Simulated assay, not measured.
Amino acid sequence: MLSLFDAALIGAGAFAAGAVNSVAGGGSFFSFPALLAVGVPPVVANASNSVSLWPGSLSGAWAYQRELRTLARYLLPMALVSLAGGALGGWLLLRTSDGAFAQMIPWLLAFATALFAFSPQLSAALARWRGHRRGAGGRGGWLAQALVSVYGGFFGAGMGILMMASLSIAGHDDVQEVNAIKNLLSALIYTVTVITFVVAGAVSWPHTATMLATATVGGWWGATMARRLPAVWLRRVVIVVALLLTLHYFFKVYGAA
């Protein structure tokens, strides 16, 4: 049974996650630490967080259905790679002990924070590199997507940024097309990992139900506020929060050493 304080804390974290995901991404920096803060074991917290944010990934994919229709032949092998990679990542998470995963949390957060903070520079570098290549697809793109999918199934934070990079490596240079493919493949990865976590009984449903409700409201609120708040300032807030959380978990895990 959730206490009122715990429900308020994870509800606020999920609300913030839904809001920032609808504008700038990076929502897991709010929702995942909130679950840890109320005492949910790390592996269960990560699984519950994935389930909580899953509906948002589905709605994002649905919004781009028109752009995706013309890419059906290309998307089939990419979808299969994403499903396999997501399932493998979810399986690896379930095979990881809470103690081992707790040791990895600071490094995973640091990696995701760096990805989020330097995503504009990464996109620019990939655009320059992509200028020397033509065409999309191929084994390089499949391999990059497979690695991103495993990471997404295992942890998830920063997956969207990694996937946009992998799609650039595959040769895509239209921003709307990249975003459409990213949303679809992310939804597939979340779907297969959610099924894996639910079947394995790794989800804390009282926490997840609370977060599902507030994340949905947060996503709606974020979308309505997107026109009023410059995305660059929201990105800066997310980066500062992510950096502080990363430092906190490094101190928590290694400070006593």
Rank of each mutant, 00 (worst) to 15 (best):
M1P: 12
M1G: 12
S3L: 07
S3A: 05
S3Q: 09
D6N: 13
D6T: 13
A12T: 15
G13M: 07
G18E: 00
G18M: 00
A24F: 12
A24D: 12
G25K: 04
G26D: 08
G27H: 02
F30C: 05
F32W: 06
F32A: 11
A34C: 12
A37I: 14
A37Q: 12
G39V: 06
V40L: 07
V44Y: 00
V44G: 01
A47W: 03
A47T: 10
S48Y: 01
S52E: 09
L53E: 07
P55N: 07
P55V: 02
P55K: 09
G56H: 07
G56L: 05
W62I: 10
W62T: 12
A63T: 14
Y64S: 08
Q65R: 15
L71S: 10
A72V: 15
R73N: 11
R73A: 13
L76M: 14
P77V: 12
P77M: 06
M78N: 09
A79P: 07
V81F: 05
A84D: 13
A84C: 13
T96K: 01
S97V: 09
A100T: 15
A100C: 09
F101G: 02
A102K: 15
P106K: 05
W107L: 15
F111D: 01
F111T: 11
A112Q: 08
T113Q: 02
F116C: 06
A117C: 12
A117T: 14
P120G: 07
Q121G: 14
L122E: 09
A124L: 11
A125R: 13
A125F: 13
W129V: 09
W129M: 10
H132R: 13
R133V: 10
A136F: 15
G138W: 06
G138F: 04
G141W: 00
W142S: 12
W142Q: 14
Q145C: 14
G153C: 02
G156W: 01
G156V: 08
M159Y: 11
G160K: 05
M163H: 10
M164Q: 06
I169A: 05
G171Y: 06
H172I: 05
H172S: 05
H172A: 04
H172V: 07
K182A: 14
L184H: 02
L184I: 10
S186D: 14
S186G: 15
I189N: 06
T191K: 02
V192D: 04
V194L: 03
T196K: 03
F197G: 01
F197K: 04
A200W: 01
G201N: 04
G201A: 02
V203K: 00
W205L: 04
A209E: 10
T210A: 11
M211I: 03
A213R: 00
T214C: 01
T216P: 02
T224N: 11
M225H: 10
M225D: 11
A226L: 09
A226V: 08
R228V: 08
R228C: 04
L229W: 13
P230W: 05
V232M: 10
V232W: 10
L234P: 05
R235T: 03
V238K: 01
L244M: 12
L245N: 11
T246K: 00
H248A: 10
H248Y: 13
H248C: 01
F250M: 06
F251C: 06
V253D: 08
Y254K: 14
G255M: 02
